[in-house]
C-alpha cells in the first residue's frame, strides 16, 4: 500500500478562555490513504471542523503530529484545497478573476485553466459574472473550480453543501463523486448530515463531543453506482444513525 496522504497521531487541542480550558480534540489518530473519500460526522462542538482546519493548515496550535505526505503541516498550501461552507468568492472580482486570484502569479495558461475547470463543474457562461449574480449552488461550484484549478492532491470540504437547498445539494454531491472518480483526488468531507456522509464516504468517521474525539470508524460498502434508495444504503445509514443517538434515545421517547 502507498504511504498515507494524511497521518494524524495523538492530536489534541484545547481552547483557553479566561480560567477555563476546553478540550476541543483529544487523542485523535487517523490515517488517510491517497484516493480515499472520507466523511467525518459528529454533533456540533465535536471538533470536526477544527480537525479539518488543522489538516488544511489553517489552525496550527495543537499537540501531537499531523503529517501530509510525510511532512508535518505547518500552514495552508495549494496542494490541499479547502472548500468552506460559504463559497467565499471575493464579491468585487468576477468569476474568472476569482479563480485567477487563487493561482500563483507565475501561472501560464491562466485562460485555459479557468475554462477547463469551470467546464468540469458544469459552468461555462459565467466567467464575467460577479458572485452576487450567481445562485448559491453555482457560487459553490465556482469555489470548487477554484480549488481544482490549483491541482490539489486532497480536497478538504467543510460542510460544503450545508447552506444549499436539498435538490442543489444532491446535484453537487453527485458532482463531487464524479470529480473524485475522474480526478483521483483524496476527499475529506465534514458534515452533520448522516445521509450525505454515508452516500459519499468510503469510510465514515463518527466523532463525539466533550472532549472531541473519534468514536467509531465505519467502512461503507458502496454499491456501484451509488444508490440513495437501496436497502443496503439504508441499513448502513441506520447503523450510524443508532450510533449517533444511542445515548439520546430519550429524545424520541415522547415523540409521536
Amino acid at each position: 500500500m502507498a504511504d498515507p496522504i494524511i497521518q494524524i497521531e495523538k492530536l489534541s487541542k484545547q481552547f483557553v478562555s479566561g480560567k477555563q480550558t476546553k478540550k476541543v480534540l483529544e487523542n485523535v489518530n487517523l490515517t488517510i490513504n491517497p484516493g480515499e473519500f472520507i466523511s467525518i460526522i459528529g454533533p456540533s462542538g465535536c471538533g470536526k471542523s477544527t480537525l479539518l482546519r488543522i489538516m488544511g493548515g489553517l489552525d496550527t496550535d495543537y499537540e501531537g503530529s499531523v503529517y501530509f505526505e510525510n511532512g508535518p503541516i505547518k500552514g495552508p498550501g495549494r496542494e490541499r484545497g479547502f472548500i468552506f461552507q460559504d463559497h467565499r468568492l471575493l464579491p468585487w472580482l468576477t468569476v474568472e478573476e476569482n479563480i485567477k486570484f487563487s493561482l500563483p502569479e507565475s501561472t501560464e495558461n491562466v485562460e485555459k485553466i479557468i475554462v477547463e475547470n469551470l467546464e468540469i463543474v458544469g459552468l461555462q457562461d459565467v466567467r464575467k459574472a460577479y458572485p452576487k449574480q450567481l445562485s448559491g449552488g453555482m457560487a459553490q461550484r465556482v469555489s470548487i473550480a477554484r480549488a481544482l484549478s490549483n491541482q490539489p492532491k486532497i480536497l478538504l470540504l467543510d460542510e460544503p453543501f450545508g447552506a444549499l437547498d436539498a435538490i442543489t445539494k444532491m446535484h453537487l454531491q453527485e458532482e463531487m463523486l464524479r470529480l473524485w472518480e475522474m480526478e483521483q483526488i483524496t476527499m475529506i468531507i465534514v458534515t452533520h448530515d448522516i445521509e450525505e456522509a454515508v452516500y459519499l464516504g468510503q469510510r465514515v468517521i463518527v466523532m463525539d463531543t466533550q472532549p472531541g474525539r473519534i468514536k467509531q470508524s465505519y467502512n461503507i460498502e458502496q454499491s456501484i453506482p451509488r444508490s440513495r434508495v437501496s436497502p443496503e444504503f439504508h441499513r448502513q445509514k441506520d447503523k450510524i444513525y443508532k450510533e449517533f443517538f444511542e445515548e439520546k434515545l430519550q429524545t424520541f421517547y415522547y415523540t409521536i
Binding site: D86, F101, N150
Partner: peptide
C-alpha cells in the same frame, strides 16, 4: 474570512 481564503491559496501580501 477573505484573509483566510488568501492564506489557503498562498496569495502574496502585495496581492
Amino acid at each position: 474570512k477573505y484573509i483566510e481564503l488568501a492564506r489557503v491559496y498562498e496569495v502574496s501580501k502585495k496581492r
